[in-house]
Every structure is written in structure tokens, then in C-alpha cells.
């Protein structure tokens, strides 16, 4: 298959997943659009290194993760296509409704005391639905380490949820509503 066809297939198959991933972890739509574009440009330039199948998505997450960690800013780039995507994202307003802000605030409060990497593992598990093995691919470590971290982070999270009445109520309400 021609490289362009390979890339286009990759782009079609993964772009919404990657967009969701970077939006969840970016300060704003501009940064998310910028990281997404940069990630795919790297994929295009290193197409031979992009693994096949679902691992391609994880590889892209890993590249985006590195870009996010570098704290890159696009503030002076002014790329028109990135701006357009950012505008579309702002129009779509993918942020959850204000009603749910309370939950997010509660979650932030709960997670705030975890280390960055433990938060990362917890959220990749919950938000992207990744397994420890998949997270390990994204983070460039072993599944074993992720499993340990996930276990520990969950234990701490659980300790936090159980003894704290306001957060416990929030968690129970969320569970109940989802069941309903």
C-alpha cells in the first residue's frame, strides 16, 4: 500500500480517539488541535515506525503524551488549519454540562493528591478504557509496573472515597444514575 494510503487509513481510524485523548489533557481547544496536528505530522514522517492495528492508536497516544508533557505552546504559531479545528471544537463545546461540573470538581479534589503518573494511569483506564498492557505501550514501560501503579492508585482512591461523606455520596449518585 502506498504511504499516503497507509496514513489516510491511520488518520481515519484514529483521529477521533486521538482528538478525545488530547482534549481531555489540554488546557484549551487550541492546544489540543495543535498537539493533534503535530502528532499526525510525526506519524507521517515516521510512518515506518508506526505499528499496525490497535497498537497504532497507542503509539499515537504515546507521541501526543510526550508532546503534552513538553508543555508545548502554539500561541504564536497561528496555523490556519489548527485555528479552524480549534474554532470547531469551541463551537461543538465538547465539555460536559455545568450540571456535571460538581462531579468533575469532586474528581479533581480526589485525584489532586495522587502523583501525575498515577492520575495518568487511572484516567487512561477509565476514560480511554485502556488495559494495563495498553497503557504500558503508551507510557513506554512494562504492563507490570502499570498494574502495580493502578492497584495502588485505586486503593488510595478508594480510601479517599469511602471515608469522605460528600465524595462518597457523589460516587454513589453517579453509580446509581448510570445504572438507571
Amino acid at each position: 500500500m502506498h504511504p499516503q494510503e497507509v496514513f489516510e487509513q491511520l488518520f481515519r481510524d484514529t483521529r477521533i480517539d486521538l482528538l478525545t485523548y488530547v482534549l481531555r489533557r489540554s488546557r484549551n481547544a487550541e492546544d489540543a488541535a495543535d498537539v493533534l496536528a503535530e502528532t499526525y505530522l510525526i506519524a507521517w514522517q515516521k510512518l515506518e515506525k508506526v505499528p499496525k492495528g490497535d497498537r497504532a492508536r497507542l503509539w499515537l497516544f504515546g507521541v501526543a503524551r510526550n508532546l503534552l508533557m513538553k508543555g508545548a505552546s502554539r500561541r504564536q504559531s497561528g496555523n490556519a488549519l489548527v485555528e479552524r479545528l480549534a474554532n470547531e471544537l469551541r463551537s461543538a463545546d465538547p465539555a460536559r454540562t455545568p450540571l456535571e461540573d460538581e462531579r468533575r470538581d469532586a474528581l479533581r479534589g480526589v485525584l489532586a493528591a495522587l502523583s501525575v503518573r498515577d492520575r495518568e494511569i487511572l484516567t487512561m483506564t477509565a476514560w480511554e478504557g485502556l488495559t494495563p498492557k495498553q497503557i504500558a505501550r503508551v507510557m513506554g514501560t512494562s504492563a507490570n509496573v502499570v498494574r502495580v501503579r493502578l492497584h495502588r492508585a485505586r486503593a488510595r482512591l478508594k480510601r479517599q472515597l469511602d471515608p469522605e461523606p460528600p465524595l462518597t455520596r457523589c460516587a454513589e449518585r453517579v453509580t446509581a444514575e448510570r445504572d438507571w
Binding site: 481531555r24 493533534l36 474554532n87 470547531e88 477509565a126 476514560w127 460516587a171 453517579v174
Partner: peptide
């Protein structure tokens, strides 16, 4: 489930024509 409820993004809003079109252009 608790973490999921705190997901800052609603993925279903990302599949609109405007976003898809902007992504096409970037690709």
C-alpha cells in the same frame, strides 16, 4: 464509573461535520 463521570470531554460531540471537515483538511 466515578472517574468516568468526571471525564471532561463528551466524545459524542466530536463527530460533527464541522470537526470532521477540519480534521480532513489537517490530514
Amino acid at each position: 464509573a466515578f472517574l468516568k463521570a468526571g471525564d471532561p470531554v463528551e466524545p459524542s460531540t466530536l463527530s460533527g461535520d464541522g470537526i470532521e471537515s477540519a480534521l480532513d483538511e489537517i490530514g
